[in-house]
Design a protein around this nucleic acid. Structure first.
Length: 177
DNA sequence: CCCTGATTCGC
DNA sequence: GCGAATCAGG
């Protein structure tokens, strides 16, 4: 591939395989096999992380965090810190897409990934709630994309190809610096 | 030893 | 942002 970036198709495949429960090495092999690429598993891991698939879970090297007795927590009180999304300017909610977030007016079949045919739209449904198995809109996808026409426009409308299913899931506050 | 995931760091 | 190098656990 010429571009030094991940094509949307590759990122899409990455998400598919990741959601399917495959390991990064497996994902890398599959993507390389299917697209003729040469991603290393490190590349897949890094990409998945940047995509927001991997939660920024911090749980390595707990070597620090003393907090011995006699001294309260090192964490200062945090009085003000939340307000941004609470009351956005009323002018911010303009018209942009006749959809709430995942409703394009079509009828999603909500089939599982394993039942998903090669030519089916892979727009993910579910996933809003943890534990809920993720299903997909299984309608004929448009050429060149992994989504059907409505979802195709929905996915690459505003942003690029990222920040989609990672919305409420990646909202883990990590301001513990 | 093999494998894996996860992070760091230079490009 | 990308990915190799690197670290850490199984």
């Amino acid at each position: 591939m010429e571009p030094g970036s991940w094509p949307s198709e590759h990122s899409d495949a990455l998400r598919d395989y990741f959601l399917k429960g495959m390991s990064y090495a497996e994902i890398g092999r599959e993507i390389n096999a299917r697209f003729g690429t040469a991603y290393t598993r490190n590349a897949v891991v890094g990409r998945a992380r940047r995509l927001g698939l991997a939660a920024p879970a911090r749980m390595k090297s707990p070597s620090i965090v003393p907090a011995f007795p006699g001294e309260p927590c090192l964490f200062p009180p945090r009085p003000p810190a939340l307000q941004s999304w609470s009351v956005p300017p009323k002018s911010a909610m303009k018209l942009a897409a006749p959809v709430k977030l995942r409703c394009v007016g079509i009828k999603p079949r909500l089939i599982s990934l394993l039942e998903l045919a090669p030519g089916d739209c892979r727009y993910p449904y579910g996933g809003d709630k943890d534990g809920e198995e993720i299903t997909f809109c299984g309608h004929p996808r448009t050429s060149g994309s992994s989504y059907c026409t409505p979802h195709f426009h929905l996915t690459r409308g505003p942003g690029s190809t990222s920040a989609r299913v990672a919305g409420p899931l990646v909202l883990r506050l990590v301001s513990a610096a």
